[in-house]
Structures are given as C-alpha cells and as structure tokens.
Write a protein that binds this DNA or RNA. Structure first.
Lengths: 219, 219, 219, 219
DNA sequence: AATGAATGAGTATTCATTCAT
DNA sequence: GATGAATGAATACTCATTCAT
C-alpha cells in the first residue's frame, strides 16, 4: 500500500532502487544467516558486489545498517497485523485467530529472511539493541492480541473473568512458537509444520484453536 | 543419581575431578555471561587458572567446549524433569503441570547460568550448532510432556481426541515462554513475572493452567 | 603592496577571487586546527562549500594544497619582516630588535592561524615536506637578522669581531622561541608570556634584549 | 650506570634482550621518522620481523608503545643532564655550559633517533600526550639550567639582577636550538654544525658562549 | 567547469589456535 | 602433561583520490 521510508544516508536514499535493493538484500541475508555479531561487513560487501567504502557511505556503521534492517522487518510485520485486523473486523474471535495464523504463515512464505531476523531479535540477548526496543516489538504483538481479546469479551464470545494481559501474553507465545516452528522447519521435525504439507498445516491450526477454545480437560 | 558421561578429550577425562570442575565452571560462567561469540578463551583460562595450551588439550576447540557445556545443561534439565515425573506419578495431570512449572522456576533460581545457556541455545541466535542438536533438546522436553499427556488420557483426565504430539508441542511452548520470561525479566516488563512477587507468580500459574484446562470460550 | 603569486592549478588561478579566498581560508582553518595528517579533505570541502571533485581540480593533492597554504604564510611573514626593516631604518640595533619582537607578537595576534601553521612547519614534526623548503624558511628569518647585524656593525653599534652568520642564527632562535611560547601559552606555563599580561610581556622583551646586549657576566 | 625499567607488558619484559632491542629499535625508527600519527603498526611489525599479534601482546596499544619510547628518551636525557651536573660541580658557570653543550652533541651522536623523538615531542602539538607531560619535559631542562644559574649567582659569577626564570628559559632555548640544528643538519645548512667538522663545532660553542657571556654591544 | 559516488588500500586492534620447549 | 609465546586472518571503519556524468 504505502511505502516505507527508505533508511540509510541521503546517498543511499538517492541510489537507484535496484542497487538499494541489492545492498539491502545482502544485509538481510547476512544478518539473518549469522546474527548481528557474526555478520561481517566484509562478506556483506562481497555479496552485494560493492566496495567497502560505499557501504559505509550508505550506512555509517554496522549498527545503523542492522537497525535499518530490523526497522524494516518490524514495519512489515506491523502492516500485516494491521491488515488482518481491518479485514477481519466482522468475524468471530476464533475466526480472527485463524486468519492471524494463516497470515503469519503467508508472511513467512513471502519474507522468510525478514521473519528470521524478526524472530532472532525477539528472543535474543545479542544485537546492539537496548531491551527497550525489543520490549516494544513484543508489546506490539501482545497489544494487538489484547485488542482482539477485549473486543471478543465485549461481544460475549470469551469468558469475562479472563486476565486479558496474561492471556494475550500466552496467546502471543503460542502463535509465535507456531510461526517460528514454521519458518525453521527443523524446530518441529517430523511434525509436518511446513509449506509442503497443507493438510498437516490445517491440522495444526485446528489443534491450536481447539486448545485455545476448549482447553484440554475431559468434560 | 547416576553420573553424566564426562566430556572433552581423554586427557580431560583423566584429570582429577576438582580441576575438571574448575575448568567447567569457568566455561559455564564465561558462556553464560557473554554468549558464545563474545566468550573469550583468554578470560576463560584466566578464570580457570590454567594455561591456554592446556585448555586446548582438554577441548580441541571453543566449539567443543561449548558443546560440552550445553550437553551438561541439557543433562541437568533432563534430571530435573525425571525427578518431577517420578515424584508426581500419583497426582492429576494439572497438578503435575503445576509442579512442573514450579520446578522450572526453582531450577532457574538454583542454576541461573545453566538456564541462561539453555535458553540462549534453544533460540539459537548465535552458537555454532547444527540443527540436530537443538532439535534433540526440544524433543526431550516435548517427549516428557507427551508422556504426561498420554498417561492422563489413559486415566480419562484429558479428552481422547487430542493429538498428543501437537498438544505436547504447544504445551511445551507455553511453559518454555513462561520460564524464559521468568529468567529474563525484561521480556515481560510490568507483568510481575519474577522472584520478587510470589502472589503474581501464583496468578500466572493459575491463569496458564486455566487456559490449558478450560480454554477461553464462554460457555 | 605587491601581490603574491596565486597558487594551485590554472583552473584555480582563473577562479573569481572570492571563491579563491573562500577555499583558501577553509584550508588554513583546517590545517591550522588539525595539523597536516589529521586535516580532512572532507571537512574542508564542506567548510568551503565546494565539491570534492572541484577541490582536486584546484589542487591536485592534499600535499599541494598544504604547500600553497604554507607558502602563503611564509609570504605574509616576509612582508611583515620587510615592513619592519623599512620602518625602522633610522633606529639603533636594539631598538630595531625590540620593534621586531613586538611586530612578531602583533602578527600572532592578527594571524593566529597562519602563525600556527608556520610554527608547525618550522618544527616540522609531521608535514610532507622536503627539508629544502623548511631550510628556506629559516634562511629567510636569519638573512633578515643578518642584514640588521651587519648594518649595526657598520655603524659601530656591535662588536666587529662577531661571527655574523652564527650570531644571526642564535638571535633568530631566541626570537622564534619567544614567539612560539607566546602563541602556545602552555609552552611557558606560569611565565606570563601572553596577551593578557602587558607588563610581563614588557619584562620579557627587556630581559631578552638585556641578554643580547650585555650578556650575563658580572663585570 | 643503573638500568632503566623495562617497559611494556610482562611478556615483553621477559623476552630475551636481543628481541626486546629489535622491537624497540623498530619502534624508535618508526616514530622518529614519521611522527606519532603517521607511524604505522603495520610497518613497524614488518621492520621488526615479528607478527602483529606479538606486537600487541608486548604493548597493548600504539599509545603505550609510544609512551614507552618517549619515557625512555626522557630518562636517558635526564641521566645525561645529571651526570654533567655532578661531574662539573667544581667548574665555572661558562665552563659548565660548555660541558653541557658538548654532552648534548655526544648524546645526539650516540642516540640520534631518541634525540629526534625528544625534539619532536618537545615542540609538537601532535602525539597523544597531554600538554602536562610535555611541559614537564621542558621544566626538566629549564630547572636544570636554573640550578646552574642560581649557584653561579651565589658565587658572584653572574650579575645579581638577572631574572633567573626568564634567563633559564632563554638559555634553554639557545642550547636546544643548537642541539636541534646539530641533529637535523639541514636546519642550519652551510653552517658546519655537524659531526664532520670539529673545528666548526668549536667555533659554534665559542660564539654561543661569547654571546651569553658578553652580549653583542660594542663597549 | 562542476559534481559527488565509487573506490580500495589503509588504520589499530582482537583472538582462537598451534607448537616448541 | 603443561606451558604460554607466536601467529595471522579477521574485525569495523576511514579517507585521499578518481572519473563518469
């Protein structure tokens, strides 16, 4: 829909889009595959096919480049969440939750590296970020879920007695785990939680929703 | 109960246990406080009071030493889980789950460094590990929960129709998130999920169990 | 009186004088405040408000620009010296020496940046200069003093037996030290050799002249 | 007589003296010929025939190495001064001054590079040294001369009315200039102020002493 | 004639690993 | 069996200079 602001120095912003993209992709690859500390500006310029000098004219420091990559990932995630919220306003809580999951899977399919960086960041101590920035990322996800929960309570779909904050935290953790497992297939080996297996994916969605809806207890 | 196999080279295994312990403790401290990449073999040998040459004769590479530390952390976690299983065999499923959580909190209180390493690894931002090793760690936790679920199903406490594997995965993710939030307080700022606040901790346990038991839906 | 030859490439010499001046001032500022090595062509073009490409078309290399700045400083010093010589032709040797000192202090007050560059160069810790250029600077000062000494000898003010060349060298060194101490206050801390203290300055002038005139020996 | 304390890390101090010497000489050469900023640790290790890693184990940083070189130069100069003072206690002021000059020439003959660094430092803004350290070097020289002047005044060799501090400053400047001219022959080209020409050197000494003793005025 | 993006050799410093003693 | 000195490839980052537009 609307474009993200282009990061980096003015020089970078004035570059032709193909080159911008080439550099940025290389950065995303590098950070995603090695993490912040191990990512090497040397490898990066080699991959991007530009000179060291240029890279540092585009982004003044490794940290700036990383921040740009992260901001971009966060912005894209946010946009996804917003879209889901708007497009599902009429649906029931559990339908919305299902949408959310499926939108998450789709996001990962479309931006696997961004997803990787996003997940890395969410749970990692490394990275040159104050905890504040990370906490904000979390709040973003939880806040979104809290909205869903509250409006469902208002409509009488969910029990009144629920502790909204705690519940949002737990739901968030469930969805996040699921998505993380999806993007790193190896996390759930043998569980069929990946693109190739649409049926299995359906079953995952159903199982998760069932847990959240009904709990486990025999009645 | 039974001893874990001693890691490292033959030379290390033949060392007197005090020295082994000294080296190992230093490694745990170093990796826990700095993470894999930033951990320094220099600091480590200084802390352990041995020579660099010796360290590399005990463990051929930084990576090997790290692997040994991780294996050890995993083994301790495993022992914890086993003990809980055995000591709670008579209780109901949800009582056992509560035990499990509280045992987890206690483990973190008692072995904060091992916990740190364990969580670091599970999320595996950095670390030089093949996916296989990490997957195995996960399987361990999930397998344990699967046992609990199955025996509860046999006793009729849980619905028969549940997909045991998937449910174990989801439960595992819930518990893990909770524990991780507990050990890094900043992950859940303002949620009161830390030692200092026993009441709040109780409420977290209750909320989580309630979700797992009853789900969210108004009935 | 007469203009100095304009330095730099033909392109630079054909520039309009305002622009020449702007570029040159920026260079003087930059070299004076940071020294040759640390002076940055980047800062310089920013300060001058021109493009990097242009600067390198005006002066082929950093070194050339520096040389131009130095030459300019030297030329200004020379003009100062000449003026003093002409204006003091009627006075005695020691009066002329006093004039010279005071003119030196005034020069520093009026052109602190040029003075800085000039002294930097004379001591030539860094700077990319062959010895020849520096030697010439010295010769300029010494030659000037030698003229003074010789004409004073002719008039019978100074002893006939003096070795003019050597004496000029020594006088030059005395005056230079005094001026250098004046411009870098820290060289003579606590000696009161700076603007703020006119009385003390007078005493310095008198002490120095007394040494040169009468020597130290008790008679 | 007594040895200077060996600088650098413990590792460096335990090295065999030949290697210490080799490294130190390379450092002296490098700093003397290029100045602090332009001196390159890369060139240095190449010249010393050691690896980069080793150099940084011997001295933790460029700055430390430079400080060591400077301290060494200062210590040697100090020793020279002390020796002259003690060995000339019985002589007249002007005889002592002559001794001092000749000792200075000898020092430069024996340690030309140290002399270079010493002079560089004395008058240079560059170098990572606070002005305090440099001011102290100056005070050392001036204080030494002030002692000489005062004891000569007590003995009635010099006029009572002299301003000891200012006179020491001026004398120091004369001697320093002479020595500096001696070590960089190009400073006084054609003046015969260098080793090769003992006669000419004698004349320099005599001229300088004559100026200091009698002044220039015809009487 | 002017621009400013691109370059790449240069900087100091680190650190896991090796190997002669 | 233990030592710790030596190594060198690696790190992020700089900056004078070039050259196509």
């Amino acid at each position: 829909m609307h474009d993200d602001p282009i990061p980096g120095t003015e020089l970078f912003r004035n570059l032709n889009p193909e080159k911008q993209e080439k550099v940025f992709q290389a950065a995303v690859d590098e950070f995603a595959s090695k993490g912040y500390r191990s990512a090497s500006m040397n490898s990066l310029v080699r991959a991007a096919g530009i000179s060291k000098g240029s890279l540092f004219q585009y982004f003044h420091a490794k940290e700036d480049l990383f921040a740009a990559v992260v901001d971009m990932a966060a912005a894209r995630v946010k946009r996804y969440l917003k879209r889901v919220r708007d497009e599902t306003a009429e649906l029931t809580f559990f339908e919305r939750l299902e949408w959310l999951m499926r939108a998450g899977f789709a996001f990962i399919d479309n931006h696997p590296l961004l997803a990787k960086i996003y997940f890395h960041l969410l749970q990692s101590g490394e990275a040159p970020f104050g905890s504040e920035r990370i906490a904000e990322l979390r709040r973003q996800g939880e806040g979104f879920l809290a909205d869903l929960v509250r409006s469902a309570q208002r409509r009488g779909e969910l029990r009144e007695s629920l502790d909204t904050e705690r519940i949002s935290f737990l739901l968030n953790s469930l969805l996040e785990t699921l998505l993380r497992a999806y993007y790193t297939e190896f996390l759930a080996p043998g569980l069929g939680l990946y693109r190739g297996d649409a049926d299995s994916l359906d079953r995952w969605v159903r199982t998760t929703l069932d847990l959240i809806r009904n709990g486990l207890e025999e009645r």
